[in-house]
Design a protein around this nucleic acid. Sequence first.
DNA 1: GAGTGGTCTAGACCACTCA
DNA 2: GAGTGGTCTAGACCACTCT
Lengths: 232, 232
Amino acid sequence: MGSPVYMQIFEDIKKKINNTELKPGDIVPSEAALCRDYGASRMTVRKGLALLVNEGYIYSIPGKGNFVSKPESNKYTIYFDEMENPINRVDQTRLLEVTIIMPDEKLAGELCTTRNKNVIMIRRLFYTEGVPVAYDVKYLLYHKGMPIVEKEIEHATFTEMISNNMPIFALKKEIMIYAQIPDEEIKRHLNIYHNLSLLVVEQKLFDKEEKPMGLGITYFRGDYIRLQGTNA
Amino acid sequence: MGSPVYMQIFEDIKKKINNTELKPGDIVPSEAALCRDYGASRMTVRKGLALLVNEGYIYSIPGKGNFVSKPESNKYTIYFDEMENPINRVDQTRLLEVTIIMPDEKLAGELCTTRNKNVIMIRRLFYTEGVPVAYDVKYLLYHKGMPIVEKEIEHATFTEMISNNMPIFALKKEIMIYAQIPDEEIKRHLNIYHNLSLLVVEQKLFDKEEKPMGLGITYFRGDYIRLQGTNA
DNA sequence: GAGTGGTCTAGACCACTCA
DNA sequence: GAGTGGTCTAGACCACTCT
């Protein structure tokens, strides 16, 4: 029993919640009561309770008490990287095009910019063992230090392109996942001759002021990629 | 400036990390130094640092110091619910079948069971505004209190089916997302006559001993669903 | 041995809720 | 006014790292 007191408190209460001995909405014994039960000081008890709060088991209402939470049952954590996924990895890329474009209505809206502002467009193909597995398009709002050198762009992930000149902790990212039938251009790029679905992943990156910095759309062959996640 | 001292410490250091004034791998000023800087007690300083640890900004090495982390740049949180998604919601369901089956090799493997154990199979259709949008199959390992009453199953999400008799906090869940072309049966169920992709979401639920309790596969019309997430 | 973080105490004052 | 959680202090002892 070498484990710290606050850990005991944490584990004990967690067990009671998992046993339904304490149910969502129930009040947890008060801090003073826990101090008595464990012969511990209040700071120690609070440290145990803080762990339960962090893991979403309980929440506090000042002046009232600590209460058992309703679990968030449909929350998942997934790790996504254009270049690497649970069943495969990109081992080669081909740069199709790097150009400056004027965005159309839709793209300007997505990037919260106007149609007369320059946008860098990067189109690439990703390969695994010589086979094209994904078609990738990025739109970056131009700003100083932006990589427009082919060498820097060709093998970079979206985050890498932008984090060259932007501290990465400040980035907010959104992801959108959907399924689609390939159009003729994508079929040609990905050597698709028969019926095949695409898994499309859109990534949008924001700066710390919540302004969009870029949009990336990756069209994966459906038989190439699976995204995995857990509620851990 | 009514905000607590520990919050000041937290914000200040966070800002320095986002400014790259402190870079990944750098050492954070020692707790003693921060006590001096802020005229605060050690417990207060430690509370501020604990926040940074929780949010993944720093980590501690006992006897050495606190260090700035490398950010996890490809981690996303998504909320998935069979019945409800960002662009639509299921407003009606139809139970196609509830039966007891013996699993085939593949399913037995997925559920870590043997081919002679009973498995409950539930097949349903989901509708939005009268249109079939998803075909849903669940496989549940039978155990006491399992819902086999149609009324209880028809409108339940996967988690609800199982959490009736199992404390929900103990559940571990895995999710897998991929794109697929519909087979003839699914085309018939979902009234698909032209080319259309499916977005397939597999959910696997585990008990607290990490043993699988059930597998759910939902085949969504590609034009019906988009999954969204953020790195928040 | 000096410095570091990890655990813990026994108090304190505050704002809040509830009866 | 009694009870609750939120913040904070000024100490303490420990195990650890580094030199």
